[in-house]
Write a protein that binds this DNA or RNA. Structure first.
Length: 520
RNA sequence: GGCGCAUUGGUGUAGUUGGUUAACACGCUGCCCUCUCAAGGCAGAGAUCACGGGUUCGAGUCCCGUAUGCGCUACCA
């Protein structure tokens, strides 16, 4: 049984890179019929927050990544981690290091590392030079019993090579001489990352560790720990990082909300669309694969991929997913800061629009409902007497929307009388032609007088009126669009008449608001 | 400083065991459609496959080197 896990540390919002790791773990588990587990790595208590934990859980839920079994909090296992470290000391696989803890210096961590490495190289100090490494057992016990503080370090063999095969990056080798005697337990008794992950992964029975490439070199240390504990070593698959447009690290401090998963929820992304986009960042399906080779459980076989196919349903994504199609090179998340039109990756925006206009209406309606609710535009009738109308309206306007937010902003006039006029639209479609001040109310009279009221009769009435009044139909059409929707752009105008109905159409055509609000 | 990983148009990617004009998606430009804007259709610009050497009849594909970027090198995760 395959068991994988997503193990974020709750030190902020859910980063999209982390979300992608979760997605890949989840896709893999669902593909092979394994378990997908969630563990919160909250050992750094100073930085961990409940709020962050909540945002992680909410984020996964939003993306539709359901986890099996109970949520694990790493901090709950701290005692076990301490005991395991002590056991390694007893077995002679780790040792107590009585070196006083270094004080943090002013310079950056990175700089400190470099400086120390240089100094050590100059003085001929290597990773095995710790004076406490070979302290006698009695001496070590005695000093510990006397209350002298100590950290516990793994005793890494001086000779030898650590080796593993990464599913993504292939053969990995690292000489032991390159690996320091890593600290397992701080002198204050706090278990450190490498110890905790390994122990928790063993306890949770993780068979495949799928995580960010930043852990690729750490893996060697972790393998040493698996060996020290006599545990079976899982398979590893490291994921390429997601970079900022300048190919640097994608971070909150530098890039703000674009990197937070919740931003996409809050700005009107369809979960399936964002999931689809994320899946294609660092992975691509095998386009040469034959349908017969793609089977999941008893699901039906799907036809081969067409070139250009990039829109995949959840089911399809699971079908197509495989770890060996994950890329090695990092992907750039392409967005332009300070440009509202390109606030996030263009392709993500495109994909969201694609989903909004093509996804099954039944799946879109609840999302629109949630958006309208949040903006106080929802009416219970939409679920009831007016459900047919609501479906039609959504279906009409969704064709040119990019996010769910558009339903409550650009699309506001379809659901409420309380909508704003876009100033540019008013100037272009209404104020530019003074005669419209009389023409539009006159058109309203015509609309009020048709026998039935539909797109067809509205068109007939409008075109007849335009001939009589000797103005271009386009003038009336565009003017009507802005009168009825407040916008300069939108669906075919006659469809809009029909959707809004006679009463509202006539009323809005007679409105004097544009002249009052923007007239000279 | 050491070690590791990566490098195909602006971005995401395809490119079977090396073999004719490097493919697709997003974005961009133009045209068509048209009541606007999208969508859609058509056409197009944009890559000497990081660079330099090899191996070969032939290399994006194999080998070596260089550069650049990133990661790890913490009593961070």
């Amino acid at each position: 049984m395959i068991r994988v896990r997503f193990a974020p540390s709750p030190t902020g919002y859910l980063h999209i890179g982390a979300a992608r790791s979760a997605l890949f773990n989840w896709l893999f588990a669902r593909k092979v019929g394994g378990k997908f587990l969630l563990r919160i790595e909250d050992t750094d208590l100073r930085r961990s927050t409940d709020e962050s934990t909540r945002s992680i859980i909410e984020g996964l839920e939003w993306l539709g990544l359901d986890y099996d079994e109970d949520l694990v909090f790493q901090s709950d296992n701290a005692d076990k981690h301490r005991a395991a470290a002590r056991k390694l000391v007893e077995e002679g696989k780790a040792y107590r290091d009585f070196t006083p803890r270094e004080q943090r210096e002013d310079k950056s961590v990175k700089q400190g590392i470099v400086d120390r490495a240089r100094a050590h190289a100059a003085e001929g100090i290597d990773h095995r030079s710790n004076p406490f490494r070979d302290l006698s057992n009695e001496e070590s016990e005695r000093r510990a019993a006397a209350g002298e503080p100590f950290a516990i370090r793994l005793k890494v063999a001086p000779e030898g090579v650590s080796h593993f095969t990464d599913i993504v990056y292939g053969e990995q080798e690292r000489a032991h001489s390159e690996i320091e005697d890593l600290v397992l337990l701080r002198s204050d008794g706090h278990p450190l990352y490498n110890l905790s992950v390994v122990l928790d992964d063993i306890e949770m029975g993780i068979t495949d560790v799928i995580r960010g490439q930043d852990h690729l070199t750490n893996t060697h240390k972790q393998i040493l720990l698996y060996q020290a504990f006599g545990a079976e070593i899982p398979r590893f698959a490291h994921l390429p990082l997601i970079l900022a447009p300048n190919k640097g690290k994608l971070s909150k401090r530098k890039h703000g909300e674009v990197v937070s998963l919740t931003t996409y929820r809050d700005r009107g992304f369809v979960p399936a669309a964002f999931r689809n986009f994320l899946a294609l960042l660092g992975w691509s399906p095998d386009t040469t694969q034959h349908a017969a080779e793609i089977t999941v459980g008893d699901s039906e076989m799907q036809p081969n991929l067409e070139p250009g196919d990039e829109i995949f349903s959840q089911h399809r994504l699971i079908e197509l997913f495989s770890l060996d199609r994950i890329h090695k090179s990092p992907a750039v998340f392409n967005f332009q800061e300070n440009d509202p039109r390109h606030w996030t990756d263009d392709k993500a925006l495109w994909m969201n629009a694609e989903y909004i206009r093509t996804m099954p209406l039944a799946e879109l309606l609840p999302l629109v409902k949630a958006e309208l609710r949040a903006e106080k535009l929802w009416r219970e009738e939409y679920d009831d007497d007016e459900s047919a109308w609501f479906e039609q309206a959504v279906n009409l306007v969704r064709q040119r929307f990019f996010t769910l937010k558009d339903f409550s902003s650009q699309g506001r006039a379809y659901f409420s009388e309380d909508f704003d006029f876009d100033e540019a639209a008013v100037r272009k479609n209404i104020l530019k032609e003074p005669r419209l001040k009389e023409l539009l109310p006159a058109l309203a009279d015509r609309m009020a007088a048709t026998e039935a009221f539909s797109a067809a009769t509205a068109e007939e009435a409008l075109r007849a009126f335009s001939e009589e009044a000797e103005v271009k139909a386009g003038l009336l059409i565009n003017g009507s669009r802005t009168m009825l929707t407040g916008q300069a752009v939108g669906p075919s105008m006659f469809e809009v008449f029909e959707i809004l109905g006679r009463e509202r159409s006539v009323m809005r055509l007679r409105s004097q608001r544009p002249w009052h609000e923007f007239g000279a």
